[in-house]
């Protein structure tokens, strides 16, 4: 089979797998979905290329499979606690991939920032846990089939675009140039120089954005989050 046919087959398998795994009220084909999804993931990974050394290959495939499998788990698990824990695993796998790309500071920053986010989300889930069993909204999805088809079509189109944009003929950087550039041993210091040199205004704007979000969150919770007022709608 040629490459586009493999891509279409794996997209079809993946859409059916995610449709099977999404909560739909009644019975879910969890294991059938997982098997189909593994087949689709294997076919789809045939679009990747070797990284030149078997250890790099092994690390990459392990991290990529962990990231994608745990993302599927986070999206399809009917229990929000498990969603949050699966998302934590996605995060660790993505941090590992960032390390593989050579972005050490970003890998550490991702884990540090998002670990707090995960903890807060877990707290929220525990706080809002329904006392009388699992909520209806966790057991039913909106249009599971249509959304799975739409999302997988998006992945397929993006993969085809990557395949045509990143051809073997485009020029790559030499290891010497990379060692003097983004893979410099003083990489974090150079990233800081870049941030507080060329991008200083952008950094200031992002700081303002964070402040505005903080004030906005406090205002939303304090002004609108109190006891229900005369809310006659619905």
């Amino acid at each position: 089979m040629s490459n586009p046919q493999i891509l279409m087959l794996s997209a079809f398998l993946a859409a059916v797998a995610i449709w099977l795994m999404l909560p739909r009220g009644g019975a879910r084909g969890r294991w059938a979905g997982a098997a189909l999804g593994a087949a689709a993931l294997g076919l789809w990974l045939s679009r990747t290329h070797g990284l030149g050394h078997w250890t790099a290959d092994g690390v990459f495939y392990a991290l990529a499979a962990a990231a994608i499998v745990s993302a599927v788990g986070a999206v399809t698990s009917p229990n929000p606690i498990y969603c949050a824990i699966w998302f934590g695993m996605t995060l660790l796998a993505v941090a590992g991939l960032l390390l593989l790309v050579g972005a050490q500071f970003l890998a550490a920053a991702t884990v540090l920032v998002y670990a707090g986010a995960i903890l807060v989300t877990l707290l929220f889930v525990l706080m809002f846990a329904q006392p009388e069993g699992r909520a209806t909204c966790d057991r039913v999805s909106w249009e599971a089939g249509l959304s799975a088809a739409a999302g997988i079509a998006l992945v397929g189109i993006l993969s085809a675009a990557v395949g045509s944009a990143v051809s073997p003929t485009i020029a790559a950087q030499s290891p010497q140039a990379l060692a003097a550039g983004v893979l410099d041993p003083r990489q974090t210091a150079r990233l800081g120089e870049e941030l507080f040199g060329r991008r200083l205004i952008a950094v200031e704007v992002v700081g303002t954005l964070l402040l505005a979000a903080l004030v906005g969150a406090a205002v939303i919770v304090n002004r609108f989050g109190g006891r229900r007022r005369d809310d006659q709608k619905s």
């Binding site: 290329h49 994608i68 993302a71 999206v75 399809t76 966790d138 999805s141 999302g151 997988i152």
Partner: peptide, 25 residues
């Protein structure tokens, strides 16, 4: 190439979750 493919897959899976799940968290 490989990292772009994984990024595309994560993006699409997140889109599926946003479209289909009903729990706000």
């Amino acid at each position: 190439n490989n990292c772009l493919l994984v990024g595309a897959a994560l993006f699409g899976l997140g889109a599926i979750g946003f479209l289909s799940r009903r729990n706000m968290i």
